[in-house]
């Protein structure tokens, strides 16, 4: 077995030699890490407008309005959620920033919520409602995108923490 396993290892390395096994991360990544070290806060900065980043941003837009409306119906008319900029570049930046904030907020909650089942359940409901709202927007933007359809279907179906903890299947 030792000889065979040694040969396996050597052969595997030879077979996979064409694959680049060291890939330079973007220069900005070290700045994010240094910022995280300096502030003690994880700074997540999306690097491109991937579908999940768009979805996360849509979550914020939808969820912000939804939660504000629930808490203070009158205030919604007086203080509507900020409209996205008409400039595409600014909108993309808004989306990235909002998506980052959503993910960071969830990650922070996951660590801080601890053992309070009620607050966990409240946060879970808010996160799912927001996620579902975003999935509707995403599906509307790209109705032929099967990933968007799957997200919407999956986000509409979870009924319990146990079920939802299995995550989404694509």
């Amino acid at each position: 077995m030792n000889d065979d396993s040694t040969h396996d290892l050597e052969d595997l390395r030879r077979e996979l030699a064409p694959l680049p096994l060291a890939i330079e991360p973007p220069d900005a990544l070290w700045n994010r890490i240094r910022g995280g070290i300096a502030s003690g806060r994880i700074a997540r900065t999306p690097t491109g407008p991937r579908w999940w980043q768009l979805a996360a941003a849509a979550l914020i837009i939808f969820g912000g309005g939804y939660m504000a409306g629930r808490r203070s119906p009158g205030a919604r008319a007086a203080n509507p959620a900020p409209a996205a900029s008409n400039r595409p570049s600014a909108t993309a930046a808004d989306i990235q920033r909002s998506g980052t904030d959503y993910v960071v907020a969830l990650a922070a909650f996951r660590q801080l919520a601890g053992k309070d089942p009620r607050s966990i359940e409240q946060a879970r409901e808010a996160a799912l409602a927001t996620f579902h709202g975003a999935s509707k927007e995403l599906a509307a933007i790209t109705p032929d995108d099967p990933t968007a359809r799957n997200i919407r279907r999956a986000s509409a179906s979870p009924s319990s923490p146990a079920e939802s903890s299995r995550g989404l299947s694509f």
Binding site: I23, P25, R44, P46, T47
Partner: peptide, 20 residues
């Protein structure tokens, strides 16, 4: 970092996730 990033990229399949 280059080896960690390469590993993460092939495990997560997306650059954004690999960076995270």
């Amino acid at each position: 970092a280059p080896r960690i990033f390469a590993l993460a990229l092939r495990m997560t399949r997306t650059r954004g996730e690999a960076e995270d």
